[in-house]
């Protein structure tokens, strides 16, 4: 029955990265991304080191390269923007192959391409090796407010249910010969989105009732999966710590 699925990034498999505790991975990923973002744009060597580190992580996590490139497509609008920058940018200009390009614009394009690619890849490594419920538990452990993780948990739990309902409504529409494609035909689509909202809202009320029936008094119980051993931290933190050393060195030189 269920044809609509949201594919989270998780890649089934066994690897040293899969085995690491979720909160350790999330923390490592955040630290790494901030190291990349803080790296000055002239430090080509620093980005090269970061890229090598990340490639090592991708290998260790046994993430298929094809999958990785597929997910990098989310960057396309920004890549286009990056390619426009050398033409739009102000400041001094330089001649490349007969084109007059802004130096600032070239730097901007380079910065966006390098940092965004490294950032997305780091996120993918984390998300591809951590099951969704574990990411939520990891965020709990990292002291993200319970209200946020609880709402996110409900959202993820019911995403497929809501998409399934959306899909069935669309099938019902198609089966009666209506196939809206354009915005001026959006009325039917939006009307069914209205009933989708009502269904989602009413399900929210029923879920609340089911929670109350099992003794819910306004506080979500906390399930901690135990703390991570020092070894996990040490292993996971190698990548971001090297990245930060690189960043600091490149900032000082």
């Amino acid at each position: 029955m269920k044809t609509a699925h949201v594919h989270a990034l998780y890649v089934h498999g066994k690897s040293p990265v899969h085995d690491l505790e979720a909160h350790v991975k999330v923390a490592a990923m955040l630290l790494f991304v901030f190291a990349v973002v803080a790296t000055p744009r002239e430090a080509f060597w620093a980005f090269a080191v970061d890229a090598v580190l990340l490639a090592g992580a991708v290998r260790a996590a046994r993430i298929p390269v094809r999958f990785l490139f597929g997910r990098l497509l989310v960057l396309i609008p920004f890549v286009l923007f990056a390619f426009l920058l050398p033409f739009l940018g102000g400041g001094a200009r330089t001649e490349v192959l007969g084109l007059s390009l802004s130096i600032e614009g070239l730097w901007g394009a380079w910065t966006i391409l390098a940092k965004a690619t490294l950032g997305v890849t780091a996120s993918i490594v984390m998300a591809a090796t951590t099951e969704v419920p574990d990411i939520l538990l990891g965020l709990d452990r990292l002291r993200v407010p319970r209200l946020i993780t609880a709402i996110a948990g409900f959202m993820i739990r019911y995403l497929d249910v809501v998409l399934g309902e959306m899909h069935r409504m669309r099938v019902a529409m198609l089966s009666r010969g209506y196939d809206p494609r354009w915005i001026w035909q959006g009325r039917a689509l939006a009307t069914s989105a209205g009933s989708l909202f009502i269904r989602s809202y009413e399900r929210g009320e029923r879920v609340h009732q089911a929670m109350v029936a099992r003794g819910y008094q306004g506080h979500m119980p906390v399930f901690n999966s135990g703390s991570a051993p020092v070894g996990s931290w040490a292993r996971a933190m190698t990548v971001p710590s090297v990245a930060w050393v690189v960043t600091i060195v490149s900032l000082l030189t």
Binding site: A150, A152, F154, M155, Y158, Y201, G204, E205, V207, H208
Partner: peptide
Amino acid sequence: PLAGLVAA
């Protein structure tokens, strides 16, 4: 739960 459902 309502917020979660509406977020979905």
